[in-house]
Amino acid sequence: MKKYLWFIPFVLVPLPFLGYPFLLSIFVLIGIYTIAAIGMDVLTTWAGQISIGNAAFFAVGAYTSAILVVNFHVPFLIAFLISGLFAMIIGIVVGLPALRVSGFYLAVVTMAFGIAVQQIIGVFQITGGYNGIRNIPVPSFWIFKASNPVYQYYVVLTIIFLIFIVLSRISFSKSGLALFAMRDSEIAARAFGVNLLKYKLAAFAASAALTGLAGSLYASAIGFISPSQFDLTLSLDLLAMVIVGGAGSVMGVMIGAAFFVGLPFLLSGYNISITIIQGVALIVILLFLPKGLLQIFKIRDLFKKKVI
């Protein structure tokens, strides 16, 4: 149980901000991006694959959820689960051919996939074309009306917590060991009889599913989606969150997401382009702090055993 204790502070986070719904909604966004970035982390850190097309899964999740809720009046919870499932299916369909190539080639293929999905979404009627979908209703959870960002915050936090539990279970299981072996050396993993394609595909599917779930939450939290929100920059941001925060740890990914989501709000008063700071952060981290911001806070060692 001890390894879950670090979550407690996050439960308390909204209390001082109860009177500031805008700030709370930023925390909600950070949580949503954390889920998507965990999806990226599963792929990069666990399976050693680079994807720069995960925005596509985010888009798939967001659109599936929005269409189900807006056009078919499906309850949000069901739409949410379906969007994760649908993103996972797409992940497997794309993953099967994509994972035949590896390393940089996979990066190129995923980049192509990301661009293609963005383009396809822009063409169809049901997705609203380039105008997107507006007025996505705020979901209600049983007795809660989730328009209150405090509820949204706890919903998102609960989801992160559940993901964390599942991930830490996996990392100590046989499958987790197989994944790590694969990341460290494909040849060694093959020598131990690890079915590489199966595990790669599993990692890819998990990554897609998590990103899709995050997309679904995003659509309902923002209330408006259009193809331009799911561009290459989003894919890069997701990758950057993992690296800037600290790969291989839910805590690190949270820090990364907070950095990338929070920064634009902090700097909105200044006339400075956000991408410069994000890009510089990414480069500086890679050159000087290969383990991410987590390293600065010196808390990595504290959490190392608990996270992965």
Partner: peptide, 17 residues
């Protein structure tokens, strides 16, 4: 590779700026 991705973001931002 990831540094070049960071550079992409920087250059885009610099041009905008």
């Amino acid at each position: 590779v990831i540094i070049t991705l960071g550079l992409l973001l920087v250059l885009e931002g610099v041009a905008l700026q």
